[in-house]
Design a protein around this nucleic acid. Structure first.
Lengths: 90, 90
DNA sequence: TCTGATTTGTCCGTATGTATG
DNA sequence: TCATACATACGGACAAATCAG
């Protein structure tokens, strides 16, 4: 239990908080906690759950979006993307 | 006055400016000017109040932090630490 | 259409951490 | 010792998009 894939944010380590949060959310997605198509926690919820500012939470979400793990829709939220099944999906 | 416990910075003495500033801040904390839990003056404020550069002020803050007198929170500021009840100071 | 609540988008200001010259 | 630059982090403000009534 000394691994770095914990589910908590630790301000005492060198890794930026937004990268720690991104790692947590990424793990939840890959684990299936947030299945494809499911809406992600809102930025405000991430604020409250992890005790971060909204801007910091937003950076985490932006990273996952850049990785293609989630899709963000203004005014609605971020959704877990489909895990790229195939090109011939139609 | 004219001793080493003045409230002013004197560039004409051998003691580094950051040590002089640290002595001033330390005195203020121990005197109760900055009570426990209270936020310390920002580095920018120390800059302006004592006419030093930010880096110099930072070294003073780092010394007090190393002494356990204050606690620094990234992106927020430094706070006066709670006094240790049983500290063997000699 | 309008209103209100929620959510994301954008911008600004402040402060510390670190690095460089 | 000082000046500058960038990264990290927090907080607030306002706008735009979405949705429910």
């Amino acid at each position: 239990m000394t691994s770095g894939d914990s589910e908590t944010i630790d301000p005492g380590v060198a890794t930026p908080l937004w990268r720690q949060l991104a790692a947590i959310l990424r793990a939840r997605i890959l684990r299936g906690d947030y299945p494809p198509g499911r809406v992600m926690p809102s930025e405000k919820q991430l604020e409250q759950e992890f005790g971060l500012s909204r801007n910091t939470a937003r950076r985490s979400v932006a990273l996952l979006r850049d990785e293609g793990l989630i899709v963000t829709v203004a005014g609605r939220g971020s959704y877990v993307a489909d895990p790229l099944p195939d090109e011939d999906e139609g």
